[in-house]
Structures are given as structure tokens and as C-alpha cells.
């Protein structure tokens, strides 16, 4: 189970990383969602005990680690907030550049720098 959970975390992280490398900003956002899934799953998997839900009256046998659940919940919500914000920024990028791809942004950046470097550094 340990190996399997780690492998799934790795797949989530890898797929997310792959998407984050794309030039399409919307894909990048989806990639970030996957990476946040990887982190959340790691949190859940890092529980020290596994078992039934920890709700009183306590069931017989082991209960699952409530602390990692609480942390995962918090992380989920935070992940929700930042993803929403990231989407908002991505949309603003579209609004201001009429483009949502990194390559275009990189070109603009390079052009700007080239303009600046026309000037000699004289002191």
C-alpha cells in the first residue's frame, strides 16, 4: 500500500508537472490542480493509523488518523482558494495580452529586453 500510494502521488505530480510545462496557461492551471492533488493525497497517506472514521462513539478496532484528515481538509480548501485565484489571474493575462500562452509572453519579454539593451551602458 505504501508503494502504491507513493506511486499514485508520483503520477499525479508528474502529470501535473507535465501540464505546468505547457505553453497554454489554462493547462498550467489544471497542472497546478493535479499537483495540489498530489500534495493532498500525500497528506492523507501520511496518516499513522488507518481504519474507520474517527467519530464518537468510537467504532471497534482502529480509527483513521483524524489529524491528517483535518490537515487535508485545510489543504483542500486552501488549494481551492489559490486555484480560483490562479484562474482569475490567467483570465486577466488573457484580457491584457489577448493571449494565454507562455511563448507569446516570453517573446514580448525578450523584445522588451532587446530594446533596453540598445542603450550603451555608459557611466
Amino acid at each position: 500500500m505504501i508503494l502504491l500510494l507513493s506511486a499514485v502521488v508520483a503520477v499525479l505530480f508528474g502529470a501535473g508537472a507535465f501540464l505546468v510545462l505547457k505553453t497554454d496557461l489554462l493547462r498550467v492551471v489544471v497542472g497546478m490542480v493535479l499537483i495540489s492533488h498530489a500534495a493532498n493525497l500525500t497528506l492523507m497517506a501520511s496518516g499513522l493509523t488507518r481504519g474507520k472514521a474517527p467519530i464518537y462513539p468510537l467504532p471497534n478496532g482502529e480509527v483513521s488518523d483524524p489529524l491528517v484528515q483535518a490537515m487535508t481538509l485545510t489543504a483542500l480548501v486552501i488549494g481551492f482558494g489559490v486555484t480560483a485565484l490562479l484562474l482569475g489571474i490567467a483570465y486577466r493575462v488573457y484580457e491584457t495580452h489577448f493571449a494565454v500562452d507562455f511563448d507569446r509572453l516570453a517573446e514580448e519579454e525578450a523584445r522588451r529586453e532587446a530594446e533596453l539593451e540598445q542603450e550603451e551602458v555608459s557611466v
Binding site: 508503494l3 500510494l5 502521488v9 508520483a10 505530480f13 508528474g14 508537472a17
Partner: peptide
């Protein structure tokens, strides 16, 4: 790069 990232994550988490 994606695979490398996955590998790194895998090593740490595992």
C-alpha cells in the same frame, strides 16, 4: 521533465 519531477516526488514520498 515531468517524469523527473514524478521520480523526485516518488522518492521523497516513498
Amino acid at each position: 521533465v515531468g517524469a523527473a519531477a514524478a521520480l523526485a516526488a516518488f522518492l521523497v514520498v516513498w
